[in-house]
Design a protein around this nucleic acid. Structure first.
Length: 110
DNA sequence: AACCTGACTTCGG
DNA sequence: TCCGAAGCCAGGT
């Protein structure tokens, strides 16, 4: 029985996010097998991003916006994304049309 | 064990 | 389109 934990899957998915791409919490949750687990994804990031060396800055909310608040990591996230040439629509919104990671399509073929 | 919290998402007004 | 409330799951206290 390979009962991989939801957290493990999430971590695996996040670590597979390619350079310059972003993905929403909800999609990660769905890919990990838990469509309603978006909040867990955020919890995993805050608790294990350092530990597993995850590209946490490539995870944003569904609107394509950075969910962190100024002074709580927002600046760092934005700065990291800009370094990866991710385009922003405004100060807090990433251009999903160009930078959203389309893992779903890849997975369906599998 | 019960209650609170959270880097979310969805629905209704 | 915007705002508030509810729903969801796992960890921490």
């Amino acid at each position: 029985m390979e009962k991989k934990k939801f957290s493990e899957r999430v971590i695996e998915i996040i670590s597979n996010i390619p350079y310059g791409k972003v993905i929403s919490y909800g999609k990660i949750a769905r890919l990990a097998g838990n469509p309603r687990g978006s909040r867990q994804v955020s919890w995993i990031l805050s608790s294990s991003s350092q530990k597993y060396n995850l590209p946490w800055h490539r995870v944003i909310n569904k609107r394509g916006q950075i969910s962190l608040k100024p002074g709580q990591g927002f600046e760092e996230q934005k700065s990291r994304l800009e370094k990866e040439n991710v385009e922003f629509c405004d100060d807090i919104t990433v251009d999903l049309n160009k930078s959203e990671w389309k893992i779903e399509e890849l997975r369906r073929k599998e």
